[in-house]
Simulated assay, not measured.
Amino acid sequence: MATAFPDLRDKLRAGSGGVGSAGECGEGGRKRRAEPASEGEEDEDEETGVESPGADEVARKVQSGVLQARPFTDSECERIEACIDDVVALAERGAYKVRTVDRAPLRNKYFFGEGYTYGSQLVKRGPGQERLYPRGEVDPIPQWIYDLVIRRLEERRIVAKGFVNSAVINDYLPGGCIVSHVDPIHIFDRPIVSVSFFSDSALSFGCKFSFRPIRVSKPVLSLPIAQGCVTVISGYAADEITHCIRPQDIKARRAVIILRRTRINAPRLDPSCLPELPDHLTNRVRRPDKRESPSVRRSSHRKASPYEAHRRRVLAMDEEADKRALVLRTPPYPDGTREHRSDNSPPRSKRPRH
């Protein structure tokens, strides 16, 4: 597929499906030019305050590898969002294979078609160490993604017919993020296609993250992404610079469907080398009777709460915060006690030991 990529870009530019250049899918679907962070612009998350030389040129290179469109109507977005809610509910009931669902605070991932190791799952850290799971370790791509999303992108010539064999749903709560990264070049062909739902956000390029507390440097380019917007990245934007979602850009629940194709020669784990499952998944039992219905129609108007999917992690974080707050509320006094008393009251006399 790599040799056919330039032709696909030409097709995207020439297509009549409303595909535009970077920044044409801003708030509410209105055209809006993506601007690189201007020189000297104040940013409370900026680490250095000094923009690297040639930042404008880098931003232009990024823009040359980004195409955007909004091929979905508001009603179509609502229908797709209802299907995403169904995925969340099915995952909560244990209807998916254990490696289909990857939970993190304020962000859940659902792998369909193909899954792969990344981050803390890697036996050996570093770029190029990611591996596809053995076939069958994650659930197949749901039919509604083919019917409601992929087919529309194929009709608009945004992706080639039969290109997609991997779909990932990232479901973010406010303040969620994904750190700077490059989609593994040895795993995924180009282009990388994503479709955003539920709320507006931004895709940032060239940021650096630091933690405890989390801070993000000024991006080389911040690309506005509206609800229902399709973003296609390739070339420099996909391969030569990192991209991320910053915490400050997730102000409301947001979900994104990432559509990719795995390379034919992508390295794949041997079944005997699968990484251990996280503790919260080791005792999970799949219920095969609770499989997803092939129909894209909903049987109920009730929506699954995405907050339930993050409930366990958030409660654990709140519990830890309460413990810290309790210690801070009862500081030690000069005599070593932690009892609560007024400033003028004498310290309690210690009882002598016999």
Rank of each mutant, 00 (worst) to 15 (best):
R156K: 10
L281D: 07
G113N: 05
I214W: 15
R33M: 10
P267M: 07
N344H: 15
V58L: 02
R338Q: 12
R107K: 15
V164E: 03
D139S: 08
V19E: 01
G65A: 08
C77K: 01
P213L: 10
A202D: 12
P306C: 04
C244F: 00
Y146R: 10
S120A: 11
P184H: 04
A95V: 00
R9G: 09
R286C: 09
Q129T: 15
L12P: 02
V50W: 13
K251N: 15
D86Q: 08
I245S: 01
D335F: 05
R254P: 07
D56Y: 02
R351A: 03
D289R: 07
F111H: 11
I145H: 00
F197L: 12
E137G: 13
R13C: 07
F72L: 15
G235E: 07
R156F: 08
A95W: 01
R152P: 09
P134S: 01
R32L: 13
S38D: 13
V314H: 14
I145S: 02
P127D: 13
D43G: 07
F5P: 07
P352T: 14
A238T: 04
V101H: 02
I187H: 00
A4I: 04
P288F: 08
S293Y: 08
P105D: 14
P346I: 00
D239A: 14
D74V: 10
K208L: 08
S16L: 06
